[in-house]
Design a protein around this nucleic acid. Structure first.
Length: 471
RNA sequence: GGUGCCAUACCCAAGUGGUAAGGGAAAGGUCUGCAAAACCUUGAUGCAUCGGUUCGAAUCCGAUUGGCACCUCCA
């Protein structure tokens, strides 16, 4: 069955056919490591992890490259004249390098906790300055650049198809619409962008490198072009990122990459939609700064957030609130309970043979291969768990197969172990069993509330009474 | 001003020409001394509104209303 993916370049769902038979080159825009990632950032990385998992389950081998933007040229959301890394460095009395390293570690901690498969290659911008300089030189030789006000600019008028990804209408575009962005008078065309700074309006930076144009630092867009081509070749299969990257970042990456090589650069462009909070777009500067740690501190498991994200399609905006997350948590723990019940019945992984089991598998594959339709695939999971025509072994085997895509750690679920409780709790339970036998309901009820106060839930089943630790 | 997206049950959310997946909540049931838990069952004659195309429309077209995002360093 073919894998169908939505290609932003053509604005439609297309059959995925890699440039090379089985080896897929995948580049995803990584984090800017000046602060913790918020859960909206993480949603995009979850989408990319999902994409990789679907491709892998479909038989492709994926070479996944992700960058770490650790160059100190990023200005703050408010463009207040101080770059993000330096701002955080001053605030916390650390060097920009320490900041970058600290938040890179924090990022991968979230990455692992959300059970995302690590990229094959993680590359830091600061380790690839030479590749960027080489690319800028190539553009310079091709006549695509000019120097103005001390900086090297890319001239969008030097190529015929600038803005094709975003379908920009260059005539009607306004410049510096946002109040917090200033126009740059050094540009010949207001859509031109900087390849190399030697004279930033923000002054001296902590991170500077020698170059043919003088000591300075690279423009933002050049790192992705330089590193992706370095690791994946001058043409590769998939480039993905957040939807916000379409009009500027990816548009400029395409311009400089294809101007340099004269070849089509990326075959499929994929973009994840935003996670919205109550106020609209999620932000690090306004409202509550929603991080994975914050979710955990409120008692949520990272898998609850993963399940929550799987419940919406990656190309749809998803509204976050704690009620919805609680709903996801309930649903996820219900899945876990059902899987645990299967294991209690002695379910084991088998090769699927029955026509019915195989058709369940086909339905699931069809849904995830149809542009990563995880909401539909979750419905398939529930269908399997509730399907009387499947044996426990078949259900468990399908669950494990599905989880190669979901990544909800369903394979690490084990048969319920006999939980041990403090002797005093066990003693109270025994007393209650005795009271029940004697039909002393008043005593039995008071013992139950006593245990409840201690944090234990009493469960009466036909086979006897047991305790459960309350969440 | 330009570009793109969206509106489906109480909530979240699939479905893009063949008669509305799934989850949560709720209600009913089985069980129980009563609860809880567990398990089972139920749920939109309807898809923002109004027109149009069609044998057939949530789905295509047009208009209207409402919402969201982006337009020089936001995932």
């Amino acid at each position: 069955m073919p894998v169908l993916l939505y290609n932003t370049m053509n604005r439609c769902v297309e059959e995925f056919v890699p440039l090379d038979d089985q080896q897929v080159g995948l580049y995803s825009c990584g984090p800017t490591v000046y602060n913790y990632a918020h859960i909206g950032n993480l949603r995009t990385f979850l989408f990319e992890d999902l994409l990789k998992r679907v491709l892998q389950l479909s038989g492709f081998s994926v070479n996944h490259v992700m960058n770490i933007t650790d160059v100190g040229h990023l200005t703050g959301d408010g463009d207040d004249g101080e770059d993000k890394l330096e701002h955080m460095a001053h605030k916390t009395n650390r060097t920009v390098w320490e900041i970058a390293s600290y938040y890179t570690d924090a990022f991968f901690k979230d990455y692992d906790e959300l059970n995302m498969i690590r990229p094959s290659t993680v590359c830091k911008a600061t380790d690839h300055i030479q590749q960027m300089i080489a690319l800028i030189k190539r553009l310079e030789e091709g006549g695509h650049t000019y120097i103005s006000g001390g900086n090297v600019y890319f001239s969008i008028d030097s190529i015929p198809d600038y803005g094709k990804l975003a379908r920009l209408d260059l005539e009607s575009l306004r410049t510096a619409v946002r109040e917090d962005v200033e126009a740059d008078d050094n540009k010949r065309n207001s859509k031109d962008f900087v390849l190399w700074f030697t004279n930033s309006k923000h002054g001296e930076q902590a991170m500077m490198w020698p170059s043919p144009w003088g000591r300075g630092f690279p423009g933002w867009h050049i790192e992705c072009s330089a590193m992706s081509m370095h690791y994946l070749g001058e043409s590769f299969d998939i480039h993905c990122g957040g939807i916000d990257a379409i009009p500027v970042h990816h548009t400029n990456e395409i311009a400089q990459s294809e101007a340099a090589t004269g070849k089509p650069w990326v075959k499929y462009w994929m973009h994840g939609e935003f996670l919205l909070d109550e106020t609209g777009k999620m932000s690090k500067s306004k409202g509550e700064f929603l991080t994975l740690s914050l979710l955990k501190s409120k008692g949520f498991d990272p898998m609850d957030y993963r399940y929550f994200c799987l419940g919406g399609h990656y190309r749809s905006q998803l509204k976050f609130n704690f009620d919805s997350l609680s709903t996801a948590r309930t649903a996820r723990t219900n899945v876990y309970d059902r899987v645990q019940n299967l294991l209690k019945d002695g379910a084991k992984q088998v090769t699927l043979a029955s026509e019915h089991a195989l058709s369940s598998q086909r339905a699931f594959m069809e849904h995830i291969q149809n542009d990563l339709n995880t909401p539909r695939a979750l419905a398939d999971l529930w269908g399997v768990l509730k399907d009387d025509r499947l044996s426990s072994d078949e259900k468990y085997s399908l669950v494990l197969l599905f989880d190669q895509v979901f990544g909800l750690r369903l394979s690490s679920i084990t048969a319920p172990e006999k939980e041990t409780f403090p002797p005093e709790a066990e003693a109270l339970l025994l007393k209650r069993v005795q009271a029940k036998k004697e039909k002393n309901w008043a005593l039995a009820d008071s013992l139950r509330s006593e245990l409840d106060a201690m944090g234990y839930l009493v469960k009466d089943t036909p086979s006897g009474s047991s305790l459960e630790k309350k969440m």
